[in-house]
């Protein structure tokens, strides 16, 4: 089936099975490799994108359910002030180890700071608990989120 979806402000047309999750449309059809496959079951958050601003597990969202929603991926985050700031601080505070989960972490953190510009530790726990970092860079992630919040 043919679908036209809006990714990072641009329209993209693909011809795929309607059940195909958005993650695989992004990765294999549109060659946007920033959103990562980790579990295929919504358990790790590596595939997190924003759909109309809401953090969404793209590995579980069929393309037929995307409709004309605005999808933002990590590749589009530098166009948003909070996204760009997170990307800068993530680099400067040297958050990543292997780096595989970090796109998803930044997508989750951007949503947190958009709704809660001054998050408490408990806010950070709640917002970030769905994103696994197998290298366990959690101390740095927390530090980076707080740094962005304090320097906004």
């Amino acid at each position: 089936m043919a679908f036209t979806i809006r990714i990072n402000g641009a329209a993209h047309s693909v011809d795929v099975d309607g059940e195909m999750p958005l993650l695989w449309v992004l990765r294999d059809e549109l060659d946007l490799k920033g959103s990562k496959y980790g579990c295929g079951a919504g358990l790790c958050g590596a595939c997190t994108v924003h759909v109309n601003g809401a953090p969404t597990r793209s590995c579980l969202l069929p393309i037929s359910a995307v409709g004309d929603a605005q999808v933002t991926t990590i590749e589009g985050m530098s166009a948003q002030p909070v996204g760009r700031r997170l990307q800068e601080v993530w680099q400067a505070l040297d958050v990543p180890q292997c780096g595989y989960c970090q796109a998803g972490q930044i997508m989750a953190a951007a949503n947190l700071l958009t709704h809660t510009p001054r998050p408490t530790d408990a806010d950070i726990d709640n917002a970030m608990a769905g994103n696994v970092c197998r290298c366990a860079t959690y101390n740095r992630i927390r530090q980076a989120i707080k740094h962005v919040a304090e320097t906004e």
């Binding site: 991926t73 985050m77 993530w90 990543p96």
Partner: peptide, 28 residues
């Protein structure tokens, strides 16, 4: 304290990992 040399690519979602490999005419 020197930040990782791939940090910029990591945080902007550029192709870097094995899973990101794409070649012309590639199948999965």
């Amino acid at each position: 304290p020197i930040p990782g040399v791939d940090n910029a690519k990591i945080v902007t979602g550029q192709k870097l990992f094995g899973i990101d490999t794409t070649l012309p005419g590639m199948l999965c």
